[in-house]
Amino acid sequence: MAKVLVVTSGKGGVGKTTSSAALGAALAHGGEKVVVIDFDVGLRNLDLVMGAERRVVFDLINVVQGDAKLNQALIRDKRMENLSLLPASQTRDKDALTEEGVARVLNELREKFDWIICDSPAGIERGATMAMRHADVAVVVTNPEVSSVRDSDRIIGLLDSKTELAEKGGRIEKHLLLTRYDPARAERGEMLKVEDVLEILSIPLIGIIPESEEVLRASNVGSPVTLNNPASAPGRAYFDAVRRLKGETVELTIPTDKKGLFGKLFGRRAA
């Protein structure tokens, strides 16, 4: 049965879009049929991170309003045929997202895909509430930083009260994805530790994505980090997260980018 997963955080810039693209590509790599939907109406960016910005013709709002068929708006990834993108509108208002319209589109997508990943906009307004509204599973993206943790706490509260599942008396499955983590700084007491964030937010951990140059390198070239460099530290961390998402028990480690002597001496390679 298809699963609707929302990638959310409250705070902006913590890595929702990066994570949506990376999780989507990693799931698709495992043979699942995946669609990633950009809910950030007015400020779409998932198309750019996934390298499909020049292929956008129709968008989510067009489909919600019946101006385009779902198949006309879906963009199939050129590298993986079982990965698709449904872009957000750049010109319309977020109020154009109606609850019934979104529900209808999601139901149609459930027929075609195994995973429907909803990339939420920042904030707690309409775009964000619509992205989480019909979700079965939530990935809460958090940076080890006070404002991000506070906003995540707020979002967890909304997931438990404002989603369809919660309103029906159910409980939405929630997972914490800690991004931009620097184990060395945490060890020195300069950054909240994994345990600190877990204790405060009290939701299970799905993965720790270490701070890495590879994330920017991947978005520079318009490719999810799990596709662009699956062997990199963030690449491996996202693949592990996907295995946990699918119910596997995977030992929790924080992958590191190992640099050889050459890498240490000469730093980065051009991307």
């Binding site: 706490d153 909240l192 405060i200």
Partner: peptide, 24 residues
Amino acid sequence: RTSAPVARERLQILLAHERGIVGG
């Protein structure tokens, strides 16, 4: 003094308060 424990403490106090309000 390391700053992470300060962050942790501030968050715990703040969130204990906010959770009461935001819960509706």
